[in-house]
């Protein structure tokens, strides 16, 4: 009886951990991308800036995912024999966008604008981590409300509900 009680008690904890594992798997740790694009290579070695590809970050809600044509500006001539660039060129020839897997999602009831945060001088790395060293992108901030509100308070931004929930 005692053994059974102890087993049941600890099985409950194991069950909770298994459930946590199931919930965590929906977080998608660094999703696989159709092309193994390296932010590190492009930012650190090529010397591109974030807005070279994410052209709308400073002016809109969304930063924008670059069109294949932006990639082909250089890759029509650069590294054309690399397997990943061959894949890119195939998308280009088929006139198809690259189906990149999204990494950061916000719920629909949250209005977040990249433009306002960049204007305030918040560095991209604050929310996305140091992309200059990243090969495969993953979500590095929880994007939970507590995190948003704490940062708003630290930076003297409004913490009124209406600021983000319009």
């Amino acid at each position: 009886m005692k053994k059974l009680l102890i087993t049941v008690y600890f099985l409950i904890f194991i069950l909770i951990i298994v459930l946590l594992g199931g919930l965590w798997s929906t977080y998608r740790d660094a999703p696989d991308q159709p092309i193994a694009f390296s932010h590190k290579k492009h930012l650190t070695y090529v010397g591109l800036e974030c807005d070279h590809c994410h052209q709308y970050a400073e002016v809109g809600l969304q930063p924008g995912i670059p069109a294949v044509s932006v990639c082909m500006d250089c890759h029509e001539a650069v590294a054309t024999d690399s397997p990943e660039i061959i894949k890119l060129t195939e998308y280009w020839n088929r006139k198809e966008p690259v189906p990149w897997a999204g990494v950061y999602y916000l719920p629909q009831h949250v209005l977040f604008t990249h433009k306002r945060h960049i204007k305030k001088g918040i560095d991209c790395a604050e929310c996305h981590g140091d992309m200059k060293v990243v090969e495969k992108v993953r979500q590095v901030r929880s994007l939970r409300m507590g995190w948003c509100v704490t940062c708003h308070r630290e930076n003297g931004a409004s913490d009124d509900c209406w600021t983000c929930h319009k």
Partner: peptide, 22 residues
């Protein structure tokens, strides 16, 4: 574990957590 941030998790970590409970 419930309050741990997502980025700290991995399947190996969860395996170790179960081992700890055992």
């Amino acid at each position: 574990l419930i309050t741990l941030t997502d980025i700290s998790y991995s399947m190996e970590f969860l395996g170790l957590a179960i081992l700890f409970i055992v």
